[in-house]
Design a protein around this nucleic acid. Structure first.
Lengths: 155, 155
DNA sequence: TATTGTTATACTCTATAACTATA
DNA sequence: TATAGTTATAGAGTATAACAATA
């Protein structure tokens, strides 16, 4: 699906998409190994520190309305608790249980080897790759961060 | 959502995910500028050369059943034609019309500047980034390419 | 009046299974 | 019988809008 000029840009896009495809697929496999749906596994990884429902939505980059079902699932599995904040009883603090922490650690270690395999490079090369990616993204100071992405009607 | 050890791997994952997020969002914006839904725009880019429905499904990495609606949309917009292959009348050849070619070119050029902004590096740095990514992926010779990704029931 | 969380709902994307028409 | 394309359908993911409880 290349356009025409600047083949390097096309290659870069393809390579980055392919990396993401592998990383996401590997993560989903790791999640399945713990019998967790991807979204719940993702939320688990976001809960290093406790968070309100809204804060968790921010960490997951999704709407707060969607967090309810995700946390429902984690709660049913006994991996998190939902506790009312005494100082503001509108807020629910979502916190990992002991079992939740164990699951989170397992998920992380299950996935680590797979991530290392995707970035199959020497330590210096990995650092250089990180620096290049970081510079590319960091220096771009773009406004595209907002995802106000108008969709046309599917004709 | 970092685990614990090897912070470079965590950073690499984060950076790659962020790049993909921007690339995809930019592409969708480019598609919207031409009043095209993302999937139709993606199919348009895949049709440099004509393809059967099944071949197009392969290029899009999706099931053939989903291609029908995508090509329906492109056909309604007058961007592609569906023609029976005379030598095997089961097969339908999907081909860009003149307008389809113009749309495809426009889409590519609309998106090119955005891609360049995401990979905001000098030409040598871009080449080096491509080499590193390519080596990381290419040398990994992994079996993860199959996406037989078992999903647990969402409890 | 504003905010947190929830519910109901809708839309996109993608997968599976059953069907048809050709081979 | 096998294959190309289609249809119907279902599920995951994510978005918006309306609502109750609390501030």
């Amino acid at each position: 699906m290349s356009t025409e000029a600047d083949p390097v840009l096309d290659e870069l896009s393809t390579l980055v998409f392919e990396m993401t495809r592998r990383l996401r697929n590997d993560f989903n496999v790791s999640a399945a190994e713990l019998n967790l749906p991807p979204t719940q596994a993702l939320a688990l990884m976001c809960l290093v520190a406790p968070a309100s429902m809204r804060e968790l939505a921010t960490r997951l980059s999704c709407e707060p309305s969607n967090v309810t079902a995700i946390v429902d699932g984690l709660e049913r599995r006994g991996l998190v608790t939902r506790e009312l904040d005494p100082s503001d009883r509108r807020i629910k603090q979502v916190t990992l249980t002991g079992e939740g922490k164990r699951h989170r650690t397992k998920l992380g270690s299950h996935n680590k080897a797979k991530v290392a395999a995707v970035f199959n490079l020497s330590a210096p090369d990995r650092s250089q790759l990180r620096d290049l990616l970081s510079r590319a993204l960091g220096d771009s100071s773009r406004s595209t961060s907002d995802s106000s992405e108008s969709r046309p009607a599917p004709q």
